[in-house]
Design a protein around this nucleic acid. Sequence first.
DNA 1: ATAGGCGCCTGTAAGC
DNA 2: TGCTTACAGGCGCCTA
Length: 250
Amino acid sequence: MPELPEVETTRRRLRPLVLGRILFQVVHQDPVRYRHTERAEGRRVEEVQRRGKFLLLSLSGGLEMVLHLGMTGGFRLEETPHTRARFLLEGGALYFHDPRRFGRIWVVERGDYREIPLLSRLGPEPLSPEFSFVPFSQALRESRKPLKALLLEQRLAAGVGNIYADEALFRAGLSPFRRGKEVGEEEARRLFRALREVLSEAVALGGSTLSDRTYQQPDGLPGGYQERHAVYGRAGLPCLGAATPWKGGW
DNA sequence: ATAGGCGCCTGTAAGC
DNA sequence: TGCTTACAGGCGCCTA
């Protein structure tokens, strides 16, 4: 569930905690999920960036630590029953918490993503100036897949998951079952715009913390966008601004 | 090219 | 109350 807004919020909170510090050791017992972390030891953290749902920590010596939070991954300031890796840093420790263990860590030569195929084929950042309508609508129309599936693929735009795919489609007034190639110019424009709006609003509010509280910031703070969800997790609930649940069908 | 299914993983909700 | 089963979902992978 950490999607672009949650990962971006994590990046912003994590950055001041690690920037310029030496990473002494990454302690864990899972060399399959957390690859080559020993390469990072003794390196300084030079920058903390995000690409789609990936966190990218530039390390001294031309290395890079890539993290994917999976569904339940996140950083905590203290140990938890689900601490999977301990980051021992100059000036303190950070704990990688991940109950379902879908999170992954790699340490690679900077920019060498051969071990991380998804990162290599990621589409454009939807909140960057490089996200432009023409290639977006062109890619839409080249596919017969349902819009929801297309949004989840990370090719049209990087960082969109279940929550924001649903929210953007709803805001654009498009059914998730519509096929890419059936979408007209005006509809494509609405989707393009809705994606940017929904994602930037969610970033501004610190992402979405669902009722399972699986996503939270290192200091335990929740996000604020869950209260704005128009559709995600709202099956059977009243429409926003309406008194009774929707009784319609598809 | 696309669809469907499984596996990974564990907490929680729902059903009996 | 206690047990079992279903579900959640990001992603890879396999088969049809």
